[in-house]
């Protein structure tokens, strides 16, 4: 059974229909890359999955648990939302680390406040994650002392500390200088072997091609094309996809 099932998600901002019925599913351990031009609704989709936005319509399942149903009459309480969103993690474009905490504290803050484990285990797990993203020596430093690439790797460790079923990335390298994108992409790639399930919104076509198991191309709030990297990049069926890929090649 699919780990994640998204059915017919629709989202409007005022009159602006941003998601016009998005459906897809994801198996455990799969990496899904979402590409598409600016304004096509990629960020909005990730925000809906993380309950930062509420869709007007559609359903979201993780395993056999229904997390969201647009038809439901009752509004979910804050408490309910908090429990449900723990299935997902989100890494932001601009990191959003907590500046007043050092790296280790950034990673342990949420697990400690939510008491998901003993303090010793939380710290041990955090140190493991920090090692995994290659920042062991930086554990006692503060975000302002780190480069953008290092900060983003901390953000990844922080998201993993809550042990989400599905980790979402919203253009994790867009805010970085070109020479720093590599280390972040490498860290994300490194998670793949650890059978993390991931959704990565990205403008890095090479990365999508090489790391993703599946690629979704979004245009104007719909999934225009979907398939393996080979399908989408080498044999695009849709005219829009071809135009988009052509464009991003030229910009490169």
């Amino acid at each position: 059974m699919a780990l994640l099932r998204v059915e017919d998600i629709r989202k409007k901002f005022g009159k602006n229909e941003v998601l016009k019925g998005i459906s897809f599913s994801l198996e455990k351990g799969e990496v899904l890359a979402i590409i598409g031009s600016s304004g096509s609704g990629k960020t909005t989709l990730l925000r809906c999955l993380n309950f930062l936005e509420t869709p007007e319509q559609g359903r979201i399942f993780v395993g056999d648990e229904e997390l969201f149903d647009g038809e439901a009459n009752e509004k979910m309480s804050d408490e309910q939302i908090r429990v449900k969103r723990l299935h997902f993690g989100l890494v932001f474009q601009n990191f959003n680390l907590f500046p007043q905490y050092n790296i280790l504290q950034n990673v342990t803050l949420a697990p400690s406040l939510l008491k998901i484990d003993t303090p010793q285990n939380i710290e041990a797990h955090a140190r493991e994650l920090i090692e995994k993203v290659g920042l062991t020596e930086k554990a006692a430093q503060y975000p302002c002392e780190l480069s953008g690439g290092q900060q983003q790797r901390v953000a990844i460790a922080r998201a993993l500390a809550m042990r989400p079923d599905i980790l979402c990335f919203d253009e994790p390298t867009s805010a970085l200088d070109p020479e720093l994108t590599g280390e972040v992409l490498k860290a994300i790639k490194g998670l793949k072997s650890g059978d993390s399930t991931m959704i990565v919104v990205t403008h890095e076509m090479e990365f999508a091609k090489n790391v993703a198991d599946r690629v979704i191309f979004m245009a104007d709030g719909v999934i225009e094309e979907e398939g393996t990297p080979a399908d989408v990049f080498d044999h695009p069926k849709s005219e829009k996809t071809r135009a988009f890929l052509q464009n991003s090649l030229e910009n490169f």
């Binding site: 908090r82 969103r85 723990l86 993690g89 989100l90 959003n96 949420a110 939510l114 998201a159 809550m162």
Partner: peptide, 9 residues
Amino acid sequence: EAGQVLGLS
């Protein structure tokens, strides 16, 4: 939002 997605109240 970073706090929210980590499940904090």
